[in-house]
Amino acid sequence: MSDTPTRDEQDRPNGPTGPDQTLPEGVSADGTPTEAPVRRYTDEQKYAVFNKEFMPHIDSMYNFAFRLTMDEDDANDLVQDTYLKAFRFISSFEQGTNAKAWLFRILKNSFINDYRKKSKEPAKVDYQDVETTYNSEDAETEHTIDLRAESVSDLIGDEVATALNSLPVDFRTVIILCDIEGFTYEEMAKILDIPIGTVRSRLHRARNLLKEKLRDYAASMGYREQNEE
C-alpha cells in the first residue's frame, strides 16, 4: 500500500505542560473569553445545558478519570473538578457541539496540570522519554508483533485491563480515547492538543506496546489454545 498516512516524525506534539491548558478553548486564565464568542446563557439555560449536554457523559468521564489515575479517590476529584470547571466556563461551550470531546479535553488538562505530578503511580515513565525512544532511528525500523488473534481471544477483561494499565499514560490515553470511547482522530487531536499525524503514530505505537503485553499474557497462559486443539 502506498497511500499510507504520512510519516510525522517531525511534527512534535506540544509539550504536555504547555501554557494554560487547563481551560477550555477560547477562555483565558482570568476566565474572560478570548476568541470564542460568549454565549449569554441565563442561569436557567446554564443548568439546562449542564444537565442535558454534560451529565450524560459522566460515566465515560469517570472511566476515563479512573483509567488515567488508577485510583478511585483521584478519579472522583478529577471528575468533580472537571464538571465544576465546565460549569464555570459554560459560556465558551456552544450548545449542540461536541460536548463529550469538550469535557474530555478539560479532564485531560486537569489531569496533566493537577494530578499527574502527585500521582501515586510508582516509577512513572515520562512521556517525553518514551516518545523519544520510539522516535529514534532504531525504533523506526518498525516491526509488527508476532501474535495471533486466537492467542488473545481467550483473555479475560482483567488481563486486558492490566495490560492496558501497564502502558505509559500517554499511550494508554490514545487507546482509551480511540478504542474504548470511539473518538475520531480529529477529535483526539483536539482533546490532546496534538496534530492528527501524531495521534495516528502514537496510536500505532501504543498498540504495538499493548500487543507486546498481550503476547506476554498469552505466553504465560502456556498457549493453552494450542494444547486444546
Binding site: 459522566i58 460515566d59 468521564m61 469517570y62 472511566n63 479512573f66 472522583n76 471528575v79 501474535l147 495471533r148 488473534a149 488473545v152 481471544s153 483473555l155 479475560i156 477483561g157 482483567d158 486486558v160 485491563a161 492496558l164 487507546i175 478504542d179 474504548i180 498498540r207 499493548l210 500487543k211 498481550l214
Partner: peptide
C-alpha cells in the same frame, strides 16, 4: 486484520465499565 479487530473488541467489550458513583 483479525488480530487488530480482536484486540479492539477486547478493549471495547471485555473490560469492566464503571458507573460514576
Amino acid at each position: 486484520y483479525n488480530l487488530e479487530k480482536e484486540i479492539k473488541q477486547l478493549l471495547n467489550g471485555k473490560m469492566e465499565k464503571k458507573c460514576c458513583p
